[in-house]
């Protein structure tokens, strides 16, 4: 979710520490894995929000530098998920760049559903929303991704066409 190996490691350690400290207060209303997922997702969302705030500040300071810069996806940092198989790495790179532009809750739903492959009911429990609300979030995330990916396809097609002509 955070798309940075170092941050992901930090967050997972923080999650372990939080679990270690507050496991006594675990009520058992949900399964232990759901509870741990909830802590993890909350920490990731907190991290993404703080990163967004920092980016907003740096956006104003580097406004002039950004002028003329190409828009997404070229401005995003590269990220390689270690679990993605080699033949899908390029596509997954495009997906992660697009995912990075989604709102945090949509991103969380997509990651939990498509990457973690969790059942819808568990995702709803993790995010503390109803199953219907979760489904709606997932639909919105997919729709947003489609909108963001369509121009990438067109550009790749054009690039391919140009390189074929050369």
């Amino acid at each position: 979710m955070v798309q940075d190996a170092a941050f992901a490691e930090d967050i997972s350690q923080e999650v372990f520490v939080t679990v270690f400290k507050s496991v006594a207060g675990f009520s058992g209303k949900s399964s232990l894995s759901t509870w741990i997922y909830r802590i993890t997702v909350n920490k990731c969302i907190d991290h993404l929000r703080s990163r967004k705030r920092q980016n907003n500040v740096s956006f104003f300071s580097s406004f002039r530098q950004r002028e003329g810069a190409e828009t997404w996806p070229d401005t995003q940092a590269d990220f390689e998920h270690p679990g993605v198989v080699a033949e899908r790495k390029e596509m997954a790179g495009i997906l992660f760049r697009a995912l990075d532009t989604l709102p945090e809750n949509q991103k969380a739903v997509f990651v939990l559903s498509q990457i973690e492959e969790l059942p819808q009911r568990e995702i709803a429990e993790i995010l503390n929303v109803s199953v219907k609300a979760m489904e709606s979030l997932l639909q919105r995330a997919k729709a947003n991704l489609r909108v963001k990916l369509a121009p990438v396809y067109e550009r790749r097609k054009q690039d391919k066409h140009t390189s074929n002509n050369e």
Binding site: G83, A92, L95, Y153
Partner: peptide
């Protein structure tokens, strides 16, 4: 193509930690 991209990270959860 879009569907392929959206499913490209499916199953990535099986990654081992460093």
């Amino acid at each position: 193509w879009i569907e392929e991209v959206m499913n490209s990270a499916a199953g990535a959860r099986r990654a081992e930690p460093p």
